[in-house]
């Protein structure tokens, strides 16, 4: 049995929208286990979101329309991105909407508006969060693009479908360039999704928070949307990493059996990826903000080395 591409597209949408909280919850559980704490349960994010949807909204007096508009936009753009990255099948109709550069820029929109929303209320925290977020982003973005360019050079394309199918179906070759690029990508993903050692998603301590500082004033369904979008973003970065660096097992068409196989492969890769991240998060301490340039600089260095290795060694 073969599914129509649009069905696969919808399936993927549903998968990401529905399972992103579960994935985030699972990461949390894993982290608690590793650190020897009691885990809240894998479904806790769902419960949080539902609770937030039920709550009333409390708005600051001078919040403008931009403040209220941002959660919807954040969610919308993240959802669009969810439709673009090939997860289980290469044959996605929406995938051609944006190539990988455009995808990075889509995340850029989210960041841009979240940062603006952080400044809308006019508290010092929001401004601080926005300022730091934009600083980190501006340092992370070149490294991100370099890492992705390395893969693009190898697959001769910036289109995600193309990259995935080239990577998935070429014969096995040791590529040091991709190893470097992957290392760089992991560092950047940590920074972009606000994980340790760049940011601590669990903290609300004034001086260390970055992302949380921007959305401090949100409540109710706005907060729910932003949280949900955040979980999706985390999952999407995993998906992007998987798609760009290890897409083996992905289905080329709509064959159900292959799709199921791809789903299993994806699940396995997500599990492995989450474990790696949890290990990194547990093993490292949060960096001081002014050590971050060095962290991101090393990501850039790795990405550049990847590109150099591509030209020198391959």
């Amino acid at each position: 049995m073969s599914l129509h591409p649009f069905v696969i597209e919808l399936l993927q949408f549903a998968l990401l929208l529905g399972l992103a909280p579960a994935f985030a919850g699972w990461v949390k559980v894993l982290k608690c286990r590793v650190q020897g704490r009691t885990a809240p349960g894998i479904l806790q994010p769902y419960r949080d979101i539902r609770r937030l949807f039920g709550k009333d909204i409390v708005l600051a007096e001078n919040a403008s329309w931009l403040f209220r508009f941002t959660p919807y936009l954040t969610f919308g753009v993240t959802a669009i991105a969810a439709g673009i990255i090939p997860l289980i099948s290469v044959d996605l109709p929406l995938s051609a909407t944006a190539d990988v550069i455009a995808l990075v820029m889509l995340f850029g929109i989210v960041r841009f508006f979240t940062a603006l929303a952080g400044m809308d209320i006019g508290t010092a925290f929001g401004g601080m969060g926005s300022s730091r977020e934009m600083t980190i982003a501006s340092l992370a973005e070149p490294a991100m693009l370099m890492a992705i360019f390395t893969v693009s050079l190898a697959s001769n394309s910036t289109s995600l479908t193309q990259m995935v199918s080239v990577m998935a179906h070429s014969e096995f070759v040791i590529r040091p360039s991709l190893a470097f690029a992957l290392a760089a990508f992991i560092l950047i993903a940590l920074a972009e999704t606000g994980r340790i050692p760049v940011d601590n998603p669990a903290t609300h301590l004034e001086l260390t928070m970055i992302h949380e500082a921007m959305i401090l004033e949100y409540s109710g369904r706005h907060l729910a949307l932003i949280e949900w979008a955040g979980m999706m973003k985390l999952t999407l970065f995993f998906a992007l990493g998987i798609a760009a660096f290890c897409p083996w097992g992905i289905a080329t068409g709509g064959d159900t059996g292959l799709l199921l196989l791809a789903l299993v492969a994806l699940a396995a890769k997500l599990v492995v990826g989450a474990c790696i991240m949890v290990l990194i998060e547990t093993g490292l301490a949060k960096l001081r903000i002014f050590r971050l340039p060095e962290f991101l600089g090393s990501a850039f260095l790795l990405a550049t080395l990847g590109m150099i290795a591509f030209f020198i060694l391959e």
């Binding site: 470097f180 080395l305 290795a309 391959e314």
Partner: peptide, 16 residues
Amino acid sequence: AQLNSLLAALILLSAF
């Protein structure tokens, strides 16, 4: 040769 390239890359990385 590939393995050697990988090792070369890692040597370069260690130099950095």
